[in-house]
Design a protein around this nucleic acid. Structure first.
Ligand SMILES: [Mn+2]
Ligand SMILES: [Mn+2]
Ligand SMILES: [Mn+2]
Ligand SMILES: [Mn+2]
Lengths: 224, 224
DNA sequence: AAAATAATTTAGATTTGTCTAAATCTCAAT
DNA sequence: ATTGAGATTTAGACAAATCTAAATTATTTT
C-alpha cells in the first residue's frame, strides 16, 4: 500500500475536482497538476491498474472506494501538518500549504495519529478546511459566529446579523464585507474583544457587540 | 540547490563513512546503501558533475566543502526530527530513525529552523548524537555524568567512578556494565534518584549516590 | 448529417535511478 | 615482474514519470 509522491498528488487532485462534478476530465487534471494532458492519460492507466479509480478512455475518471480512502488519508496528513505549522511553529497561514504539500507524503500512519493527538485533535486546518479524523470522517463545514472561530483559522464573512447603517459604517471603516477573508489573531478575555487580521491590512480590534453580528464560513476545500 | 531523496541519501552516507577514513570506496557505499556497486558508480559521476564530491575512477571518493555542507544540513534535519518524535510525540528512541529517514528530505529550511526553536535548540538527538546548529556547527560528543544526561537520550556507559566490590554488586544486579546502552526515563527531584531503562529489561531506579559514579557517552554517529 | 473544433489518446523520446553481466583495473602475493 | 583475486567500471536494459507532436475520438456548429 505504498504510493509514490506523484501518484498521491494525482489521487488528491481527483478527489478535490470530484467534489462538484461526478466525473473528472483529463484536461481539468492536467490544469490542476500543471502537467500535460498526455502525462495525465499515462498516469490514469497506471492508477486504474492499481484499482484506485474507474477510467474508460475519453469517458473521464472517478475514484473507487480505495481511491477515496487514500485521498482522505493524504488530506488528513496535509491539514494536520498545516495546523502544526501554524499553531506550534508560528507560520502564517498563507505560507504553510507549500510545505504541507511535501509533508503529506511522509508514510508513517503512526506518526500522523500521534501528531493528531499532540495537536489535541483539531477540527479544522488554518484555512478553515475540515480535518478528517483517524477513521476518515470529516465534520461538515458550516457557518459560525465570528466569536466561535478559533484563533488563526482563516474564514470568509458570509452573513451580517442585521444591516443597519450603524453596523455598515463600522464594517466599511474596517474594510469588512461579505466574502472578506479574515482570521482572529487574539481574543481578549477582559471584554471579549477580538483582534482581526485581513490580508494587506494591519490588524485591528473589534468589540464583542460587533463580533456577535458577524458570521463566517471556513473556506471551501480547494486550496486544501 | 534542490536535490532528490536519492542524492541526499548518498551524500549523507558518504559523510558518515568519511568520519574514520579519509576516502570512501564504492563497495563501502554500496553496502551502506544496500544497492549495487554499479549503481554507486553511476551516481558518483552525477554527484561529481554537481560538484558535491571529488571522484576519480578507481580512486574512491571524498565530499567537497559543498557536499559536506549539504550532508550536515541533512543530518541536522534528521536529528531534529528524531528529537521531535521522541520528546513531543512520545515515540521510543528505537523507532524514530526510519521515520526521520523520510522527514530529513523535506526541503524547507525555514521549517527546520522553526522546529529547532520550538524544541528549544536541543544539543543531541535521542541516540545521543550531536545536532548541528543553524550554522552547521556541532558540539563535540564527550563523556558526561549520568545525572547530567537529559531525559530519553540514549547513551552508553563508558566509565565507573570507582570500582569497589560494593558498587560492582549493585551494578551487576541491575545489569549495568561498560558499554551498556541506557536512557533516563524520569528524574525524581525529591531525592535525585533516576529511573533508568536498558533495552530488554524493565525500568528500574537508581540512587543519586550511585548515579554520581556512572559516566556515559552519547552514542557514536553511525546509525545517526 | 457533415464539417470544424476541441478534447483526448497514442507514438516515440528523455531523464533519473536502478539492475545484471561482462570487461577492466588495482594491489598484494608469489 | 607476473599473476590472480577482488574491487570497480562499463555496457546494455528496465521502470517511472515526464514531454512534444501526431493521430484519433467527441462535441459543437453550420
Ligand atoms: Mn503533495
Ligand atoms: Mn489547508
Ligand atoms: Mn533519507
Ligand atoms: Mn539518531
Amino acid at each position: 500500500m505504498k504510493h509514490s509522491v506523484s501518484r498521491e498528488n494525482y489521487i488528491k487532485a481527483i478527489y478535490h475536482l470530484q467534489q462538484d462534478e461526478t466525473t473528472v476530465t483529463t484536461n481539468e487534471l492536467a490544469n490542476a497538476l500543471q502537467t500535460s494532458a498526455a502525462s495525465v492519460t499515462d498516469m490514469l492507466k497506471k492508477l486504474k491498474a492499481r484499482k484506485l479509480l474507474q477510467y474508460e478512455k475519453y469517458r473521464g475518471v472517478r475514484l473507487t472506494l480505495d481511491g477515496r480512502r487514500l485521498a482522505i488519508q493524504i488530506i488528513r496528513k496535509h491539514r494536520l501538518w498545516e495546523y502544526f505549522l501554524v499553531e506550534k511553529l508560528h507560520f502564517g497561514w498563507e505560507e504553510v500549504h507549500e510545505i504541507a504539500e511535501e509533508l503529506e507524503h511522509i508514510s508513517s500512519l503512526k506518526l500522523i495519529d500521534r501528531l493528531d493527538e499532540f495537536l489535541d485533535f483539531p477540527q479544522a486546518d488554518p484555512h478553515g478546511d475540515p480535518i478528517p479524523d483517524i477513521n476518515g470522517r470529516m465534520p461538515v463545514n458550516k457557518q459560525v459566529n465570528l466569536q466561535e472561530l478559533p484563533l488563526h483559522i482563516a474564514a470568509a464573512v458570509c452573513n451580517i446579523g442585521d444591516q443597519t447603517p450603524e453596523i455598515m459604517e463600522v464594517l466599511n471603516h474596517n474594510n469588512i464585507r461579505i466574502g472578506t477573508k479574515l482570521e482572529i489573531r487574539k481574543k481578549f478575555d477582559f471584554d471579549n474583544s477580538l483582534e482581526v487580521k485581513i490580508r494587506n491590512y494591519p490588524p485591528f480590534t473589534i468589540s464583542e457587540h460587533l463580533a456577535q453580528k458577524i458570521f463566517v464560513k471556513h473556506e471551501k476545500p480547494g486550496s486544501a
